[in-house]
Design a protein around this nucleic acid. Sequence first.
DNA 1: GGTATCTTTGAGTGATCACTCAATAGTAAC
DNA 2: GTTACTATTGAGTGATCACTCAAAGATACC
Lengths: 197, 197
Amino acid sequence: MTRARPYNRDVALDAAMRLFWKKGYHATSLKDLEDALHMKPGSIYAAFSSKEALFSAALERYYRRNKAEFLSGFDGNVSPLGKMVDYLRYLGQNPAEDPECRACMLVKTLLSATPDEDAIADQARGYLDELKGDFATVFETAKAAGELPADLDVKRLARRYQSEVMTLRIEAHRGTNGEDLADLADEAARSFEQLRI
Amino acid sequence: MTRARPYNRDVALDAAMRLFWKKGYHATSLKDLEDALHMKPGSIYAAFSSKEALFSAALERYYRRNKAEFLSGFDGNVSPLGKMVDYLRYLGQNPAEDPECRACMLVKTLLSATPDEDAIADQARGYLDELKGDFATVFETAKAAGELPADLDVKRLARRYQSEVMTLRIEAHRGTNGEDLADLADEAARSFEQLRI
DNA sequence: GGTATCTTTGAGTGATCACTCAATAGTAAC
DNA sequence: GTTACTATTGAGTGATCACTCAAAGATACC
């Protein structure tokens, strides 16, 4: 071992994630990244290979965070359906402080990836599919716990749930005021609550 | 009158709209526009002032088209609620041929505008608000025609309707297959149909 | 202190960015 | 045909793009 790294990879990646989340891939320049990560171009390339690879790592980080935040509420002994419903209300009541970090980074990425950036779009698509799968798993658990009808189509339910999450995040980004946003979240939450047996 | 314009402004604007729609503002270069509009940089600037002004004009064109397409179904003598429901099913059954032109350009623009591009984001926001207002107007008409309960909150309904439209377009962009998309649209359509008295 | 090893540095790379303008070419009136 | 007017042209503008690499800096072992 020789010289220690004066930067913290996690801290740098976090800063990159926030910057890409706000500005998107194309509008974020290396100059912006240098400022945000407090690193010179050479160091950035030594650590992350390329702008695209850095973006990819930042997107993965976003995905992991999102998944962890969602899953953190499920310890097993409380109502899975209740947790799902709570999460929707939570989204409506706690929009991110930074107005630029309210929309889902996966959706932003998916919608702003150009045809020649298949890799990035596919990565975002893959993460969205995984999250949808997580939703389905929880609904399945709820079904097993007798909270939902046995004949209910869990995949379809998860798809609709994800739509609601995406919509809430977009509305928050759009500038919908707190009251209306909470209202929208409540409306969505109740539609899932109604399914309870 | 002197030299006639060898380009058609509407045709050029249409090409610009499609290109910006696909690639977004940042990823579209002037070179791309030159190729798509069959115009040299000088002509583009003589006709549209700047890349941003051209984008703005293209966005307005998209908005007008969208509005016209939506309103074209309302002649007055048929069920307004029926038309609203039909439009959702139409969206689910007729995704644009070009997979890059399926998501709503207004949403794409709103989500990919950077903080320093307030003008563009505000324009997209304004158009979305106008379209939401159009939805509300039709629901109001449906209410007046006795199709909907008199105590129904039309604004909230319009907000939810717009969410469904945005979601369908995002799902179409995401690559959801035709069957699932039609299914999703049908699910949304039925939720509005259920409100009929 | 000397040496080996590895990281950081930042000026510099060619390419591409949005954009300009003097020159050119086309039309209309006479 | 000549003049007057204007739209189109496209090489060229400085700025910025993502990215590189030889030099310098920092540590570990001796």
